[in-house]
């Protein structure tokens, strides 16, 4: 890792860490509220896997949802802030390649996602006891899911010229895809049509694979989920690097 890449990564991590109350504390609290409300209200109404309580089922979904949203939020909001305030120029003036640029923003966002995800997991330990059937799958899907959303965040942050465009991207793309991915339910409990729809949502595979790491059971095989998530990451990385190489909206 070059010094330039390490510095940009360090700067990006320091940026969210300095305001950790908002960037880590707030999403952990939100996830906790979801857990308290949903697990209480839905416990008897939602059918999940045999032998797994609804609250236990919900926790990995919440961890992953928070992780994904915060990874997206980190790269996208950092980029749009730097663009709007103009301080992106300091990075653009430096001898940093577009690949290093991409790597730094994605890695920092993955770290933010993992820190928030770990935070949610830690506070929910008080309420729910979880099995850990395949810890490596847990780490694999957490990291890959974070990287996918980080990449999407880079695209959104570069594309958006204003904060409301970014908010639209978040509200109309990221939120629906996360909510409809099986965070709150097993898709087997859905009508056939919605099951089919869920299967074309890449977020579903990240959450399903992540959950497999805990319970050893899931809606689809973790290998299929790994393939879909891996493929999504490769495709997004390719698209983002292409954008950066052309200097789209950054080097006009």
């Amino acid at each position: 890792m070059s010094i330039a890449l390490r510095t940009l990564l360090y700067k990006e991590v320091l940026r969210f860490w300095k305001v950790g109350f908002q960037t880590v504390g707030a999403p952990v609290l939100t996830a906790l509220l979801y857990l308290l409300v949903f697990s209480h209200v839905l416990d008897r109404h939602v059918e999940v896997y045999g032998g797994v309580s609804y609250a236990a089922f919900l926790v990995p979904g919440l961890v992953m949802m928070s992780l994904l949203q915060n990874a997206f939020s980190n790269s996208s909001s950092s980029l749009i802030q730097s663009k709007v305030t103009g301080n992106i120029v300091f990075v653009l003036l430096a001898p940093i390649s577009y690949r290093e640029f991409y790597a730094a923003y994605v890695l920092a966002a993955v770290i933010r996602g993992l820190v928030v995800g770990a935070g949610v997991w830690l506070v929910t330990l008080w309420f729910v006891e979880l099995p850990y059937a395949h810890p490596l799958w847990i780490l694999f899907f957490a990291t890959l899911g974070g990287a996918i959303l980080a990449s999407l965040g880079v695209i959104a942050g570069i594309w958006a010229d204003k904060f409301d465009q970014l908010a639209a991207f978040q509200n109309f793309v990221v939120m629906p895809l996360t909510f409809l991915s099986g965070v709150f339910y097993s898709i087997h409990s859905l009508p056939a049509f919605w099951q089919t729809v869920s299967h074309v949502n890449p977020f579903f595979y990240m959450i399903d694979g992540f959950r497999y790491g805990f319970f050893g059971q899931s809606d689809v095989s973790p290998w299929i989920s790994a393939l879909v998530a891996g493929g999504s990451f490769v495709a997004l990385t390719y698209a983002t690097l292409n954008m950066l190489a052309r200097g789209y909206k950054l080097r006009s």
């Binding site: 010094i3 330039a4 360090y10 305030t85 990075v91 430096a94």
Partner: peptide, 17 residues
């Protein structure tokens, strides 16, 4: 960059180079 002090700003800029 409003997140940093003067020294942090200059150290980070050095690192970029």
């Amino acid at each position: 960059d409003p997140f940093f002090t003067v020294r942090e700003t200059l150290r980070i800029q050095s690192g970029y180079f």
